[in-house]
């Protein structure tokens, strides 16, 4: 291995877990604060998140330069890219939710993907030329972005259920005080689930275009699994609008869809085997 060329990657691989840990600690302090109102002058989470995004983006760029391709193909590469997507979506979610109290939970999945990914990152592997085309890259990026959106929606749905339970059982605990209002959690979860659905539809259309497939015949089990996931999320979105299945019922649908997504990508497909 060319040590000089790999040096920036080694340094960034060392930095990334530290950046995630620092950001999660800062978000944890914000969440577990005994203050009912957020301290807007607190800069720890913002600085931590900037550190994470910088380190993670720099690592992806360094790998892209060294491998001469976007790192999306091995388990390590895909997990690293998924983690980066989750961190970016976390930033967008923080902007739209106007709260940093969710950060501990919405950034944690990014860390959970990025840190293990570092152990699976190996030397560059040779890929068939078909896999280097723009359509395939769009397909994978849209697919990973949809996974990220579904993961975020699942975290928010879980938080909704926790807050729902607190309210129903009248548990005025720290979690109750510091989680955002129930209606906000419901709307955020629904928004990200819908975004994930759109991205997954885009990814499927691009994928079908890439393999020149015009029918559902000959579908692999993992493809069938992904279609099941899509059906669940699409069904949840339609039921929400048409039948008023909001709140607890919608959160449960999102969690069901997310569980299906995990099964489709692990049991049916094996982790990111292309």
């Amino acid at each position: 291995m060319d040590i000089a060329a790999a040096f920036p990657i080694l340094v960034l691989k060392g930095l990334l877990p530290v950046a995630y840990l620092a950001a999660l600690v800062a978000y944890g302090r914000t969440f577990f604060s005994d203050r009912a109102r957020e301290n807007e002058s607190e800069t720890g989470p913002k600085t931590g998140l900037m550190g994470v995004l910088l380190a993670h983006s720099a690592l992806l760029i360094a790998i892209t330069l060294r491998f001469q391709r976007v790192p999306l193909w091995t388990l390590g590469e895909a997990l690293l890219f998924l983690g980066w997507m989750l961190a970016v979506l976390h930033l967008l979610s923080e902007w739209s939710a106007e709260t940093r109290r969710l950060g501990l939970f919405t950034l944690a999945p990014a860390a959970a993907c990025a840190v293990p990914a570092l152990f699976f990152l190996g030397d560059p592997i040779a890929l068939p030329p078909d896999y280097l085309g723009a359509w395939f890259i769009f397909h994978i990026v849209a697919s990973l972005a949809s996974y990220a959106a579904f993961s975020l929606a699942a975290v928010l749905a879980l938080l909704y259920l926790i807050q729902h339970r607190n309210l129903k059982q009248k548990h005025f605990t720290l979690t109750f005080r510091n989680l955002p209002p129930l209606d906000k959690l419901d709307r955020l979860a629904a928004t990200w689930a819908f975004m994930g659905t759109l991205l997954m539809i885009a990814s499927s259309v691009i994928g079908a275009w890439w393999v020149r497939r015009d029918s559902l015949r000959g579908m692999t089990p993992s493809e069938a699994g992904i279609f099941a996931v899509l059906a669940i999320f699409l069904g949840a979105a339609i039921a929400r609008r048409a039948l008023g299945w909001r709140g607890k019922r919608h959160a449960q649908w999102i969690l069901l869809g997310f569980a299906a997504l995990v099964i489709a990508n692990s049991v049916l497909h094996g982790f990111f085997r292309y």
Partner: peptide, 9 residues
């Protein structure tokens, strides 16, 4: 009122 905010924002 505070509880209403916790549900409805």
């Amino acid at each position: 009122v505070e509880l209403a905010r916790k549900v409805l924002g």
